[in-house]
Write a protein that binds this DNA or RNA. Sequence first.
DNA 1: CGACGCGATTAAGTATGACGTTTTAGTCAC
DNA 2: GTGACTAAAACGTCATACTTAATCGCGTCG
Lengths: 232, 232
Amino acid sequence: MDSAQGLHARVLDSLGPAITAGEYPPGSVLRTDELEERFDVSRTVIREVIRVLESMHLVTSRRRVGVTVLAPEEWNVYDPRVIRWRLAGPDRPRQLRSLTVLRSAVEPVAAGLAARLATPEQCAELTEHALGMVATSRGQQLQRYLVHDIAFHRVILRASGNEMFARLGDVVAEVLTGRTHHQVMFTDPDPAAVTLHVRVAEAVRERDAERAEALTREIASGAMAELDVLAP
Amino acid sequence: MDSAQGLHARVLDSLGPAITAGEYPPGSVLRTDELEERFDVSRTVIREVIRVLESMHLVTSRRRVGVTVLAPEEWNVYDPRVIRWRLAGPDRPRQLRSLTVLRSAVEPVAAGLAARLATPEQCAELTEHALGMVATSRGQQLQRYLVHDIAFHRVILRASGNEMFARLGDVVAEVLTGRTHHQVMFTDPDPAAVTLHVRVAEAVRERDAERAEALTREIASGAMAELDVLAP
DNA sequence: CGACGCGATTAAGTATGACGTTTTAGTCAC
DNA sequence: GTGACTAAAACGTCATACTTAATCGCGTCG
């Protein structure tokens, strides 16, 4: 997933998760030359990493003091990398909850907008993926089901015409992927959820914003309920 | 607002807005040594700036090619700085629209959650700021009104107990501030909106989630309507 | 005895030159 | 015309020297 093509990327993908995992409690101080030695890279690389972490508000760098780890409330929790790191760490349940609540707020509104704004092509994509979900919802084809599920939600968010909603596509993908991979999900997807997706596609196709929004709200409720079962 | 305490910060606050303003169309290529000369700083500084811009997905850096400006769809539109830059540039109307739609999706849900989870202290703060809004809603006290308005929405978002909602406090503040400063708002705030805020505070205090959510939806509708008047 | 201030120290910030690495493009041979 | 090989261009990394600002401690003054 993380290609880590450069040295700084490698260091970042090591240090970032460590911070979001709470290995360095807020207020901890890191010194650049210490990190230099720890990762066996030059100062250039460390400084670039620090700058990026700083831009995520994970740390703050002050002269004569060092690089201080910030409190979680300061973090840029919308940064896709921060989300991914937290999903991979001990904060995972809490993060999943936050994201699911966010989804439950955004996706219904997005679906309503999509019903008004979706292009014929997007309607077609939506239907296609909904049917794809139906087709792969039985017989341990979770992997392929997931692809359609993600694509479906992506299209909804994109079709809403709101760039900020569209950008949440990655977040939703992360959540759905996480659900499939990390969680014990031996059983096939809930048939009710599958049906709901089909009906959302229908509502959007028929430009019925109210219904699209209401149905998506149901999907979101389902996701919340599922969360109560699977996350502490 | 931007203190720009370091060289890299200064360069960033010059290059970032230029990119989000579309001065460098997607696909444009910047070379580091060219930037070095343009800003009269060392490679160290330029490289750090590039790394941060890269982390915002504003640009991508490839060997033998240079630093390529990415398409707006790629941008991390949730990064507070990107939001600020876009609000300050020609993309402002579009950005305001996106943010207001986002608010209209999130804030009602946040208010509903706040009604269930707000601490007594937060309830008190809410009431205080609602009353503050009432007190300053007449007689050209926009500046002081704004403070209470921002604080009110911040408390709602924070009281929702969702860290991702809480993080939108800055965004809302940016939008509300922008409305007051950039727009021609000679008239006093809409009395209906003020009343709605008071009633939301009431609903939260009485733990009436449904009502808090519905009332906040009305506030959001108002903001959307106001936008139709003021943004192209 | 306490408060204020000045200097010394420390760690980040900046500059610079050298070298490595990757990717593209151009050329030459077949 | 196609292939491979080479050369150049731009970023990536390293090492080092120097600058700047913040903090700590010591000393002086009130």
